[in-house]
Structure formats: structure tokens, C-alpha cells
């Protein structure tokens, strides 16, 4: 191999090498354009994803092995402590669940009265996150469920604390998901306290969401809980998205700088839930548009009704409040 004579033929073949490189570059560029603008290359991508699936498994193996080892070598005391903590959490959660079940039943009854389809119960499936590093400049990850499990593009992902993201590319065995904090992602939200609707946009930083479409006079405060509003049709309504951690109102600008922290543990999750909302599974056809519309309109007051004190007449007092706060901000500097 690699004899000096051969090396010199490398120069002699330079022309054909250049031509071949040019041709292959044209092929690559065409593929990029076609892939960007049309769905024709999806089968190719699916086939290739089956080829690289072993690579993904191989990459995931060390962290899986490490987890297995640390679980099986954990100390008895630590396990007992964890067990005790989990039992406590279970007790707490089931106590809350009892109350929620009563509320759910009541909600279903009221929705029946309103003639809308109940949207509370969603079907879920646990998916494991593969420890595969995708493009480090984007907030994406890989899960071990694919179209064989019924996953579809645009499906919502949750974890124990809130909304994680959605699927953007589904192959037979795996799927690629984008986090809500990706710079190209936005999720429609509603403020739990007063039903104010807006959009939470990702920043590219796993710990921050931006709410760029709120005016200076909008009624938003640090600590406000943001829930998914269900508008846009991707995410099921009523799941936590984040909590507002910073509100800056600058008098010179018409929009406030509002930063929220995602509710889900985006960079610490090992497992996520794939959600099928009720409509997708059963496909109830009876008078859905009207029912849905009514459900949406009915949602914000239902949310606001819970904290009874300020939910009753949100508009007038909040206006006064924000005015006062703007005055405060002005007097500070």
C-alpha cells in the first residue's frame, strides 16, 4: 500500500479528482436544498437513521452502564433514604391526586353541560433520552421511541414538572426532539394568575425562556406561573411551562423584558413522557369545532377562578397596579 509511485499518480489524477469533487459537491448542495425545501428526502433520512442507530446505542452504552453500576453499588443507607423520600412524595402526590380526581370529575360534568369534549385525560408513553450529543449549538436530543411506537412529528413531550418540548423528526426506532428553550422554538402560554395569553420563546440557554410580546403595561409579575394555553394545537392545554423570574420595564420601550425559567428539568431529565392528546387518539367527530372553541374561551376564567382574591375582576385593578409599578421604576434611577 501507499508506495511512492502511487503517491505521484495522485498528482497526475488531479484533474479528474477536481471534476469528481465538483460533481459530488453539486450532489451535496442539491441534497441540502431538496432536504430544506421538500419532504422527498425523508425516506433516505429514515433509512440512514436505521444505519446509525447502532452508533447511537454504542454512544449511550457507557452512561447506561455507569448508571447501572452506580445503582447496583449504591449503599444500603442511601437506598433506604431514597425509598423513604419517595414514599413521602408518593403519599403527598396521592393526597393531591385525590383532590384532583374530584376536580376532574367536576370539570368533566361541567364540560358535559357545555357540550364540549373532555380534554383532561391524555395517553402517555415513557421514552428514554439517549445520551447522544447532537449539534451542540442547538437544544435538541434523541429519544428511544419512534414511528413504530406511534410517535409523530409535532408530538408534545412532558416530564414530571412540565412541558419539555416536541418531536421534530421521527424515524422508525428513534425520534429527535427540540426543547422549548431552543432558539427556534416558541410555545403559546397563558399566565395562570389572570389568564393573560402570550408566547414564550426559547433563548438557546436551557435555563431561560423569553416573553417578548408583553407590553410595559401588561399584568405580569415575578413568580407568575405560565401554563400551556393549547392554542397552536401542538401542546395540550394546562401543563406548566415555566415561572417568571425577571420583569424589566423600560420606560423608553413599548415592550417589557420578561424572562421565565422552564418548569421542566430540561438538562437533567433521563426520561420524558410522549403525550397523545385525547383528540388524536379517539378522533371524536361530534361537533368538535364548536365544543373546542367553547372550551378555549372557557379556559382562562376557569384558571383564574382558583385564586379567588384577584381573579374576580382582573382588568381594572391590575391596570392601576402596573401604573404604580411603572412610576416606581421611573423614580428609581
Amino acid at each position: 500500500m501507499g508506495a511512492p509511485g502511487k503517491a505521484s499518480t495522485g498528482i497526475g489524477r488531479g484533474g479528474s479528482l477536481g471534476v469528481r469533487c465538483l460533481l459530488l459537491s453539486i450532489v451535496a448542495c442539491t441534497a441540502m436544498v431538496v432536504d430544506r425545501r421538500t419532504p422527498y428526502l425523508e425516506p433516505v433520512r429514515d433509512a440512514l437513521s436505521l444505519v446509525v442507530y447502532p452508533v447511537q446505542l454504542a454512544v449511550d452504552t457507557p452512561s447506561r452502564a455507569w448508571r447501572w453500576a452506580s445503582e447496583s453499588l449504591a449503599e444500603r443507607a442511601a437506598l433506604l433514604e431514597e425509598n423513604r423520600r419517595l414514599k413521602r412524595e408518593l403519599l403527598y402526590s396521592s393526597a393531591r391526586l385525590q383532590r384532583l380526581e374530584a376536580l376532574e370529575a367536576e370539570n368533566a360534568r361541567l364540560r358535559e353541560l357545555l357540550d364540549s369534549t373532555a380534554q383532561i385525560t391524555d395517553r402517555v408513553l415513557v421514552a428514554e433520552i439517549l445520551a447522544v450529543d447532537l449539534d451542540p449549538y442547538r437544544q435538541r436530543f434523541m429519544v428511544n421511541r419512534g414511528s413504530l411506537d406511534g410517535a409523530y412529528v409535532g408530538q408534545a413531550l412532558l416530564d414530571a414538572n412540565g412541558i419539555v418540548g416536541q418531536l421534530v423528526d421521527v424515524s422508525p426506532m428513534t425520534a429527535e426532539a427540540v426543547l422549548i428553550t431552543d432558539a427556534d422554538h416558541a410555545v403559546p402560554v397563558v399566565v395562570n394568575r389572570n389568564g393573560l395569553r402570550t408566547i414564550a420563546v426559547g433563548t438557546g440557554d436551557a435555563g431561560r425562556l423569553r416573553l417578548p410580546y408583553l407590553t410595559n403595561s401588561a399584568d405580569i409579575e415575578v413568580g407568575d406561573l405560565l401554563l400551556s394555553s393549547g392554542l397552536g394545537g401542538v401542546f395540550p392545554a394546562g401543563y406548566p411551562v415555566g415561572r417568571v423570574i425577571e420583569v424589566r420595564r423600560r420606560p423608553g420601550q413599548s415592550f417589557a423584558d420578561v424572562i421565565a425559567e422552564p418548569a421542566a428539568a430540561l438538562d437533567r431529565d433521563r426520561e420524558v413522557l410522549l403525550v397523545w392528546t385525547n383528540d388524536d387518539v379517539t378522533g371524536l367527530a361530534d361537533a368538535r369545532p364548536a365544543g373546542r372553541l367553547r372550551a378555549r374561551v372557557a379556559a382562562p376564567p376557569a384558571d383564574a377562578a382558583e385564586p379567588d382574591g384577584d381573579g374576580a375582576s382582573p382588568d381594572a385593578p391590575s391596570e392601576v397596579e402596573t401604573d404604580a409599578r411603572v412610576a416606581d421604576v421611573r423614580s428609581e434611577p
Binding site: 479528482l17 437513521s49 444505519v51 446509525v52 452508533v55 447532537l134 421534530v168
Partner: peptide, 22 residues
Amino acid sequence: MLDVLSGALLGQHGFGLMLIVY
């Protein structure tokens, strides 16, 4: 293969690698 792994456009990584090899 890199494109599929990283969710890039098909051909994106190949283009650069090809130029390097050339």
C-alpha cells in the same frame, strides 16, 4: 451519517469533509 446523527441538512457535513479531502 453525521447529518442524520446531528439532525443537520442531508449533505451539510459531507460537503465540508469532501472539500477537506480534496
